[in-house]
């Protein structure tokens, strides 16, 4: 079985602030990390590998430093990393990104048939959750999003059974392989890398594919191939809250007061 995991290098958004004047992200000095959802995707691929045996290739599109994401994945147990890096890819939105990734995966599949693609549900910088489904649609693979449990992988019948998580329910889905699954954080707890693996990952050669390899029309990828335009980035303003104090143990009075306030703010109906 060949599993491809898509992982992205993202700024640690919990450390990002928004410049109040220019309304752009202040990225100075902010470290880059593996998109946290992708950490879970990598872990789930490794767990499938542990349980059923598989080769795990981690794929990332981004500038040269994004290879650290791949090295970290290899340190955890992934077999190989592949970096898609080309100026022509820069500025891609989700449409263009899924195009580059799916073409790369198709090319990978020519070398060694890809059976399963695991993606994080979304990234913490874009939060669109569109790339995973985009890849599946372009490749014509089955797709299950929001997976919180992989129940079974049957290589004989080439089927995967997973559980998807919704607000108030779960859905158990069986899909044909090859398939794309996108995972939520609850699916697992990522493992910790051992030092021998880390040392191996520090030195291992990471394969890089440029657009020379993929031969995509430059007008369909990167900024030119991205119909999404970011109009403005801003921090949503939040009005200052109010702390109601001095009610002590008068529970009923407190509840009545809060109900009244919620009604005034039209949060509750009349």
């Amino acid at each position: 079985m060949h599993i491809v995991v898509c992982a992205k290098m993202v700024p640690d958004t919990t450390q990002v602030s928004i410049d109040p004047v220019t309304n752009t992200l202040v990225r100075e000095g902010v470290p880059f990390i593996t998109n946290p959802f992708d950490d879970h995707a990598i872990e789930e691929a490794l767990r499938i590998k542990d349980a059923y045996g598989a080769r795990v290739t981690v794929l990332s599109m981004g500038p040269a430093p994004a290879e650290t994401v791949l090295r970290k994945a290899i340190a955890l147990g992934a077999d190989a990393g592949l970096l898609l890096s080309d100026r022509a890819f820069g500025g891609s939105d989700t449409l263009a990104t899924s195009k580059v990734l799916s073409v790369a995966i198709a090319k990978l599949s020519d070398q060694e048939r890809v059976d399963l693609i695991v993606c994080g549900k979304q990234t913490i910088d874009g939060d669109t959750a569109q790339v995973g489904p985009g890849i599946a649609t372009r490749l014509g693979y089955a797709q299950v999003t929001l997976v919180d449990k992989v129940l079974d992988v049957d290589l004989d019948t080439r089927r995967i059974t997973v559980r998807a998580k919704f607000d108030n329910r779960h859905q158990v889905v069986e899909a044909r392989l090859p398939a794309v699954i996108t995972v939520v954080r609850e699916i697992n707890t990522p493992r910790y890398p051992t030092v021998p693996r880390r040392l191996y990952a520090e030195e291992v050669q990471i394969q890089v594919w440029t657009n020379e390899m993929l031969k995509l029309d430059p007008n369909t990828i990167g900024l030119k191939g991205s119909p999404t335009w970011v109009k403005r980035i801003f921090a949503p303003e939040r009005e200052k809250g109010e702390i109601v104090m001095g009610l002590g143990k008068e529970k009923e009075k407190a509840v009545r007061l809060i109900m009244q306030k919620l009604a005034d703010w039209k949060v509750l109906g009349p």
Partner: peptide
Amino acid sequence: VMESADFPPELI
């Protein structure tokens, strides 16, 4: 920790 990555989960 370094060879087995086998430690109490809260340490991850």
